[in-house]
């Protein structure tokens, strides 16, 4: 049933995506270096499927989300939405496509306008998609109902809601333009565990109901494992490993993925961690080491890792990995 990575059923295909931020120094604001926030990211999301994007803080996950939505301009690479490259399109050309891709944010407090009621926030989307004024109220109620909110919520302000309720409103706003892809930028990491589960199940139900595709960004491997069909592990602007979820969890090839998986808490008391945790910090993206980006923290590091840049390697059945060790095997 589950296919390999490449297929014709793709909603979004990203290839060689790059974003470098200049670092300006001194009195004349000369460019002193580049932060390679996203450095050659490639993945594909299929219709009604979920891609989980995992990684530590600062590895470029959110930048990827903003690049796909064209909120930031990509420096290189293609972003193909249903086969159409939008990476070079101007703001005017992209406008009709804005409806197709929506975002749900991490912070439920900052993602809703404090001076607009929940209904008004959602109405902005309905206005964009050309719903006539008379029908909007009914649609707002339906959208709110869809995300599990009561009818009275439409004319309330965000400060009257709890974090989980706000996140639901954020999802309803994203749904208001009837998108086919929703980018969830850590939508649950600011919520309580019990509320997290509610939101995850809501997202899953909406996917079944509306045939949505998700790019689910998170640092919680359990959640990603539960929601995703495919997982991409990101480190310092690179995708280190990319595979079907079950394959990745059962047979992780990259040492970084292994370390991440071993850091997931196991809900069984007394069980020891199988691997030692990672040592050191993520190196600065301003001055990344040559060769493999992970070399500084890898336990299996070799001479080749330090010098030679590594490309994606297909370890079979579309299990892509970026590690010399795997290539040698």
């Amino acid at each position: 049933m589950e296919q390999t990575i490449s297929s014709n059923n793709s909603v979004l295909k990203v290839n060689g995506l790059k974003k470098y931020f200049p670092v300006r120094r001194g009195f004349f604001q000369r460019i002193g270096g580049w932060i390679k926030a996203v450095d050659g990211v490639a993945f594909e999301i299929e219709q009604a499927k979920t891609l989980g994007l995992v990684g530590e803080s600062g590895c470029g996950k959110s930048t990827v989300a903003r690049l796909i939505l064209k909120l930031l301009e990509a420096d290189a690479g293609q972003i193909a939405y249903r086969g159409r490259d939008i990476s070079k399109s101007s703001e005017k050309d992209i406008k009709p496509l804005r409806k197709e891709m929506q975002i749900v944010f991490q912070d439920p407090y900052g993602s809703l306008n404090p001076r607009m009621t929940a209904g008004q926030s959602i109405e902005e989307g309905l206005r964009i998609s050309g719903v006539p004024g008379k029908k909007r109220k009914e649609r707002i109620d339906r959208l709110l109902n869809m995300v599990g909110m009561s009818y009275g919520s439409a004319d309330r302000y965000p400060h009257e809601f709890s974090g989980g309720q706000r996140q639901r409103i954020g999802i309803a706003r994203a749904l208001s333009v009837e998108p086919s892809l929703i980018i969830c930028d850590e939508p649950i990491s600011a919520l309580d565990v019990s509320i997290q589960a509610q939101i995850i199940n809501l997202l899953k139900d909406l996917q079944d109901e509306l045939g949505l595709s998700y790019l689910f960004i998170s640092h919680d491997l359990n959640v990603v494992g539960y929601l995703s069909d495919q997982v991409a592990v990101m480190y310092l602007g690179h995708i280190m490993e990319y595979s079907r979820t079950a394959e990745l969890f059962e047979n992780p090839l990259h040492p970084y993925t292994l370390a991440l998986l071993s850091s997931v808490p196991v809900p069984e008391p007394g069980q020891k961690l199988r691997m030692q945790s990672l040592k050191g910090d993520v190196p600065s993206a301003l001055d990344p080491p040559p060769g493999c980006k992970f070399q500084g923290r890898c336990t299996l590091v070799e001479e080749q890792c330090r010098n030679q840049e590594i490309d994606f390697y297909d370890a079979g059945e579309g299990h892509m990995v970026r590690c010399w060790k795997v290539v040698k095997k």
Binding site: M101, I103, L112, G170, V177
Partner: peptide, 11 residues
């Protein structure tokens, strides 16, 4: 974020 969301909606 709410301004980003508005831009993403195409406002």
């Amino acid at each position: 974020d709410f301004v980003t969301a508005a831009r993403a909606l195409g406002v």
